[in-house]
Design a protein around this nucleic acid. Structure first.
Length: 160
RNA sequence: CCAGGGGGCCGGGCAGCCGCGUGCGGGGCAACCCGCCCGAGGAAAGUCCGGGCUCCACGAAACAAGGGUGGCGGGUAACGCCCGCCGUGGGCAACCACAGGGAAAGUGCCACAGAGAGCAGACCGCCGAUGGCCCGCUCCUUCGGGAACGCGGCACAGGCAAGGGUGAAAGGGUGCGGCAAGAGCGCACCGGGGUCGCUGGCAACAGCACCCGCAUGGCAAACCCCACCCGGAGCAAGGCCAAAUAGGGACGGCGCGCCCUCUUGUUGCAAGAGGGCAGGGGUGUUUCGCCCCGGGACCGUCCGGGUUGGCUGCUUGAGCGUGGGGAGCGAUCCCCCGCCUAGAGGAAUGGCUGCCCCCGCCUGAGCGGCGGGACAGAACCCGGCUUACAGGCUCCCUGGCUUU
């Protein structure tokens, strides 16, 4: 819970970076011609992504939520729990590489995609990560997420 | 060759494919595209010191408070850093460690153990010369006894602090003399203290001479005293542009005094404007001074609203160089030559693969296979310190062994 709260310090928990992709417009369907893959920058977008679809895999958790016509966007979250700055940076780079390769092809149009790093994600084989992400994106495209955890998403009852 | 001591340096390499960020060049109305250059560390870390830079305060002096430093000399922009030297302690040595001013200005503390711990003390122990007691030996005897002197015993008075033991520390050490036993009680050497003196050194200090038998243990990262140093906040500093808006409201405190000039109405007078005084507020305190207000400014509490975009600061600097020369033991400094070496901003500096290198295991060896390759990621910039670190390279020095 604390990992979510500390957004002020830029370096740590919430991260993304910029740059469009050259072939995106060509590969995507016609509707996405003006929507290259973009980076989520606002903290509120990350928070609202929590209420969308969620798929957990050993190395990461993938969130997806419609963003109302703002194109394909992505964000990466690695908390301090994962490791020191070097480890976190490495995880973010590998995730970014994964998303760079797969989102223009199989990303959900007009959705925010958020990858949350999990404990074993740094050492996991890259090819394995790639197939896991592709499979997760496939499930999302068909509208299926993991079953919602009891009492977590909608309500924050245990708080008080 | 073995063991040890002190520095300096590196901290994966090559290739391929796919990417990212500044900058430059080109194309495009534009979104954007193409090409090229460059693109994490020795600690980028901890944020512990010192500066630059920026804003705030700023007139000076004194004082107070708080913090820091602490042998001497030098280096430096500066330092709590570095170099050299001195002193003390450790080591055979190379060398290492030191928060290294003052404990006869004062206050305080020294647990436990121990007999005794700060105007010291006597448990065990040693002695018992001297005095006392015993009356065994010895001597004398008038045989009852006596004993000034001698030998011996007791350990009563008393003496001692060498030894044992306790402790972090027990009021110098060793030896000889001395004594009843002992003791700086005396002497020699060593240690210590003191004094002006002399010599050397910029100095800390050292050496010599003389004096003192030794008298005052430790803690000042306990208070304290002495000397010296120190304004505050930090690039989310600060500046510019754009957008937005109202510098809004409530309550409470303090408080609307006097004089002069002008204008208007004009009997005294009232209103408005300007100036001055009293007064109020600010500047750590005080003095002088300065600034603001001089009536709606100020102070306190609370509520509400707006902005949370862009550019700049931003990398040419106390810069870097296994370039050269000079001064110095050295830190470092000076001159010449060459180089431009990350500037992001929800934050780039990468991902994957192959080969090589190093290490470990599977093996007794080769091939092969598997696994691993540290600590760690710039955020305004420098100088240090500290801490973390697989493995490796290299130079110098010391001790020992072997050989010539």
């Amino acid at each position: 819970m604390t990992g979510f709260r500390m957004t002020g310090t830029p370096n740590d928990p919430v991260v993304s970076e910029g740059g469009g992709l050259p072939e995106a417009s060509v590969l995507l369907p016609a509707s996405a011609a003006t929507a290259p893959v973009a980076v989520m920058q606002r903290r509120a977008d990350f928070l609202s992504a929590n209420h969308g679809l969620r798929i957990a895999r050993p190395a990461f958790v993938l969130l997806a939520r419609p963003n109302g016509g703002r194109g394909v966007r992505f964000g990466i979250t690695v908390t301090k729990k994962i490791g020191n700055a070097v480890v976190r940076n490495r995880m973010k780079r590998r995730f970014r590489e994964l998303l760079r390769a797969s989102l223009p092809i199989s990303g959900l149009p007009d959705h925010d995609h958020v990858l949350i790093g999990r404990e074993g994600g740094v050492e996991r084989d890259f090819a394995l990560l790639r197939s896991e992400l592709a499979e997760a994106l496939g499930r999302l495209a068909s509208g299926k997420g993991d079953p919602r955890r009891r009492g977590s998403a909608g309500r924050r009852s245990p708080r008080r």
